[in-house]
Structures are given as C-alpha cells and as structure tokens.
Amino acid sequence: MSFAEALLLSVVTAAMPLMLAALGEMVAERSGVLNLGVEGMMVMGAVSAFGVAAATGSATLGVLAGVGAGIAMAALFGLIALGLAANQVATGLALTIFGLGLSGLIGAPLVGARREPLPRLEIPWLSDIPLVGKMLFGQDALVYLGALLLALLVYVIRRTRTGLVLRAVGDNPEAGHALGIKVLRVRLLAVLFGGAMAGLAGAHLVLAYTPFWSTGMTAGRGWIALALVVFGAWQPMRVAFGALLFGAVTILQFHAQGLGIGLPSQLMASLPYLATIVALVMIAAAGRKSSAAPAALGREFVLDR
C-alpha cells in the first residue's frame, strides 16, 4: 500500500465516527430536537463496545453493545427533554457530563487493554484500483454499514412518508399534532435513532480507529458532529462530505511533522476545533443556516389537553 493510499484510507476511518454521529443527530434535529448529548452518547457507546468486545471476543457483540448504550442514553434524554419538556440545551449538557463520568467509571478496569482493530474487508479486484481502491473497497465492515446507512437516509428523508412526517414534525409540531401525527413519539424515535448512531460511532472509534479504550477518548468528536449537522445544512450528503473534510483535518494533524510543518503538536491537535469554528462561521455567514434549520429546532412541544 502506498503512503497516499494509506492516507486516504485513514481519512475515511477517521471520518466515520463523525459521520455516523452527525447523521444520527441530523435525524433528531430534523424532528425538532436539539440533543447536545452526542458526546456523552458516543463515549458510552465506545466504552460499552470495547468492554463487551474485550469480554466476549466478539466485535459484533461489541458493536451491538455500543448501539444499545447509545439508545439507552438517548432514552434518558427523551424522558427528561421530551417526557417532561425540560430545556433541551441543559438536558443535553447533562447527558454529556453524565456519559463522560459514567464511561470513566465503567471503563476504569478496561484502561490499558488492547485488542486487534476490526479487520479490513478488501473487495477483490475493486480494492486493487490504484489510489482510491483501498479507500473505497478496502474498509472495515462498519464503514460499509455507514455508507449503506447514508444512502438509506438520503432516500428515506426525501422520498418516503416516514421522512415527510419527520420533516413535518420538525417544521411545525403543533400543526402535525392537529393532523393526528403522534409528535412526541416521532421525536422520541428520532432521538433514539440519534443515540443508536452515536453509539455506533463510539463503537467504530474504539474498535476500528484506535484499538484501545482511554477515558474521555471521544475528545470532543460528539461536539464536532453537532457542528457538522449545521455545516451540512441538515442534508445527509453534505453532512457526510463535511465529515470527510474533518477526517482529513484530523489525519493532517498526525502527519504534520512528516510533512515538515514545525508547529507544536498541541497546536496541531487544536486544529479540528479551530476548523469547526471556521466552518460554523462560514456557514452562518453564507446565510444558509437560517433557511435550512428545522423551524421548530429546540422548541419544546407539550401535549396539553
């Protein structure tokens, strides 16, 4: 494998957790719910996936555990922010603090353990295409799953009734209710989907991207995923593109020294966060945000008869 091939491959691997978490959050936000707990759901997904995979030796069970943990965390958010109509911003923050703490608690005995990263499944012939072959057809199973989920989301949101109901609830929940849509149920399902995706993202992070668990290892990726939703203007393809861009920034920082960039490593490490700010500002300045954001984003809906 050439250096360029390895680089492209690692960009996709680095982008995958961001993309999965951002797509999940995008669905939640499309239903009008702002869940700032992505970081917490993701880190819980990571620790659960690693713990189960390490205990059972099965990566599949690990992935399922990660997804399950993400769903459980999202359910907690749903209970308080949807069931009790509490402030979504504060509830999401609490979920992140909760997830970071709880993952540290459960993960303490796992620190230091290592396991083999997910195997890369090379598709015969196709993966031999120069340069992009390895990137597109030499990935681990979760990357293929991610690509599948992306295609599915594009289709469902634009083309199906499910997507229509989702968009309607995020645009005007009161009108949806008047039409007989079970608004809170739709929102809860969207939030749970977001949790599942964040959990999957955490699983990929800990099973494929880095082969070990360390406390707080998500390192703000959940927050970057939140920014990617804005950056991608709530459109799945654009969100995925943004994730690849950020994957590239992450990889760039690792290879900076090799490329002869003499900046201190800490400053290179802050690059993704600075890039996030720049991306947010660019999108906001372009004025796309105001028109693309779901109209009811962050607004509580109270079933009151």
Partner: peptide, 27 residues
C-alpha cells in the same frame, strides 16, 4: 384554523400528502 396549521418548509403537495392515507408518499 385562523392561524394556519401548515408546514412552511414543505411543498404544497407534501402538506396535503400528510393529511392523506399512508399510501401517499412525496413521490
């Protein structure tokens, strides 16, 4: 209603499709 219960970000067809049976899709 006096204050319309429409979805501003959706098209006219999508608005009406929501009120029709589940067999009606955006397509």
């Amino acid at each position: 209603f006096q204050h319309f219960a429409l979805f501003e970000a959706l098209t006219v067809a999508e608005n009406i499709a929501l009120a029709l049976g589940p067999s009606v899709t955006p397509r």
